Computed example of a mutant assay.
Amino acid sequence: MPFPEIEAARSDVMEHWLSIVGIGEDGWNGLSPAAKQAVESAEFLYGGVRHLAYVPTVRAAQIAWPSPMAPAVHEILTSHRGRSRVSVLASGDPMLFGVGVTLTRELAPAEFLVIPQVSAFSLACLSPRLGNF
């Protein structure tokens, strides 16, 4: 092993316990294998009712976002942090004005994984009605 200090550092990094998965209107079929694995390996799956409906039966407890969302965000960050595998479904790119920013603001990068989909903003740029810029 040429760099034992790098290997030691890798072993000290906490495996992510939180996966934030972007999902589009194409639902489950539009997810990458990594995104599907993140959802399938979760113990708790949070998301909007619409997003949860896209997912086939999984072993995770499915929890729809309450309104307001703050209590569920607090629960994820306090009750589940480092103790449970949690996946969160979000529209498109969760880090583009989405729940991903709220959830990860105070987490170390090693604690979470974000798997985005195409955002609504990206889709709008593809619209033929917008013309060329």
Results as ranks from 00 to 15, higher is better:
A9M: 04
R105M: 09
Q62L: 06
V58A: 10
Y54V: 01
A42C: 06
I115P: 00
L52W: 10
G82I: 03
R85S: 12
R10K: 14
W17E: 09
F121G: 06
E40G: 04
Q62E: 10
A72W: 04
D12F: 13
F44D: 03
A110F: 13
Y54E: 15
V118A: 15
A60M: 10
E7D: 10
P56T: 09
R83C: 06
S87W: 06
R50I: 08
R85F: 00
V86K: 05
G48P: 01
M1A: 12
A9S: 10
Y54I: 00
I23C: 08
T57C: 10
I76L: 07
P2Y: 01
P128E: 03
H16I: 00
A90S: 15
N132W: 06
L107N: 10
N132Q: 13
F121V: 12
S32M: 08
S32D: 06
P116N: 12
E40S: 10
R105G: 02
V58Y: 13
V114S: 14
E106C: 01
S11M: 11
C125D: 02
S127G: 03
E5I: 10
V13H: 09
A8S: 12
P2W: 05
G92I: 02
G24M: 05
E111R: 07
A72D: 14
L96E: 15
A38F: 03
L126M: 14
V13Y: 08
L126Y: 01
Y54T: 05
H80F: 13
I6Y: 05
P94I: 02
D12L: 15
E25Q: 14
A124L: 09
S84F: 04
L18W: 12
E25V: 02
E106T: 13
V55T: 04
Q62A: 08
G92E: 04
G22V: 02
V13A: 15
W28D: 15
E15T: 10
S119I: 09
A34V: 00
L96D: 12
G22I: 01
V58G: 01
G131L: 03
L45P: 05
T104M: 02
L113V: 11
P68A: 08
G100F: 03
S84K: 15
R59A: 09
Q62C: 10
S32R: 08
S19G: 14
G100M: 03
V21I: 12
V101F: 08
L31C: 04
R10T: 03
P94K: 02
P33F: 05
P66L: 08
Q117D: 11
I6F: 13
Q62D: 01
M95D: 08
Q62N: 07
A9Q: 09
S91Q: 07
A90Y: 01
A110S: 15
R129G: 00
A124Y: 02
F44M: 12
N29Q: 14
G22Q: 06
T78D: 11
A124V: 02
G47N: 08
A70F: 06
F112G: 11
A42N: 03
D26E: 12
H74R: 10
F133N: 03
V39M: 10
L123C: 09
M1Q: 11
A70E: 14
V101S: 11
Q62R: 15
T104L: 05
G24T: 05
F133S: 11
P4K: 11
N29G: 14
G24E: 05
R105A: 15
S41F: 00
